[in-house]
Simulated scan of single mutants.
Amino acid sequence: MTGRALFSDWLKIRGKGIWFLVFLAPIGLTAMQALNFGLRLDYLKEQYAADLWGGLLENVVMFVPLALMLGATVLSSMIAGVEHEQGSWKQLLAMPISRTAVYTGKFLLACVLLIISCLLLTAGIVVLGLVLGFDAGSIPWGQAITLGLMPLAGALPVLSLEFWLTTVSKNQALPVTLGIVLAIVGLFSLSLSPYFPLAWSLMAWSGPNPLMFAGMGIGAGLLILLLGMVHFSRKDVA
């Protein structure tokens, strides 16, 4: 049932500009580092001489949490907005499909789109490194593939919260504003504490125990997802 809901939502996003957003973030981050390394290539090659690929990944990953939180906010709003704009919530929920399946399907769609965006970022950075002349035989594929996926696991609470708020609220201004604030605060969260939830996204990559922070993000994200699902199941959505 959830699979049917996911497939239906996948069809609904055609022509909504969502795919543009999915491609925008990885292209933007890759272009930013192309400019960074293009202007300072000799200096950066000297600075990261011991590990050129590692240096490139470190320069990218500092912007990934911000991109993920903003992406989670906008994607959640756009996915929920498909139903809000058309006023089709009541029609959708009157169909022989549970509210839990509807909610889970839309959430999984947001997760899949973010995962695709993360993998596109990996592809873009690998291509950039090769264009810059880095050794193709020393590509750290494990790190490259998890470049966006580990921070995404740490950012899952933000995605779950934003998805909840955008789904149950017809006025998207408040949840979108909150998402932007959370993304900005996340930039400075490490100065508060590495255990502050908004810091988990970055710590899931660069922390002393990345898997722990990724697990914390997944656990908190699933808890918020469950709370949102219960609220959505009981709420009269217009």
Rank of each mutant, 00 (worst) to 15 (best):
L68T: 05
L121Y: 05
L223D: 08
F134Q: 08
K106G: 01
A173Q: 11
G15M: 07
G15S: 09
G15N: 11
K45S: 02
W89Q: 10
F213H: 03
L159S: 07
S98Y: 06
V185T: 03
K106A: 11
S77G: 03
K45F: 13
L11C: 07
L187W: 00
T146H: 09
P175E: 14
D9Q: 10
W10Q: 05
L227H: 05
R99Y: 07
L182H: 02
A101W: 05
G142Y: 15
Q91V: 12
L35I: 15
I18S: 02
L202P: 01
G217R: 09
A204I: 07
F163L: 13
L119Q: 04
L11N: 06
V126Q: 01
L165S: 01
E162I: 06
S169V: 12
G142S: 13
M1W: 13
L165W: 07
A123F: 13
G38W: 13
A183V: 00
D42S: 12
V64A: 12
L56Y: 03
A34C: 05
I79P: 00
P157Y: 14
M203Y: 03
A238N: 08
G38T: 14
S160Y: 01
L75K: 07
M203N: 01
V60Y: 10
I218V: 15
L182F: 09
M216Q: 10
A220M: 15
H84W: 15
G179K: 03
P26M: 10
G38K: 08
W205N: 03
V112D: 00
P140T: 13
V102R: 00
Q143E: 15
Q86S: 14
L120W: 08
Y48A: 04
A214T: 08
V22T: 03
A80M: 12
M203C: 02
M203Q: 13
L52K: 05
L159M: 13
I180Q: 02
G215E: 14
L57R: 08
P194S: 06
L198T: 00
A173D: 11
F232W: 05
S76A: 14
D42I: 12
W141D: 13
Y195H: 10
V74T: 04
G179R: 01
A80W: 07
V181T: 11
A72E: 04
L152N: 06
A5D: 06
I125K: 00
I224W: 03
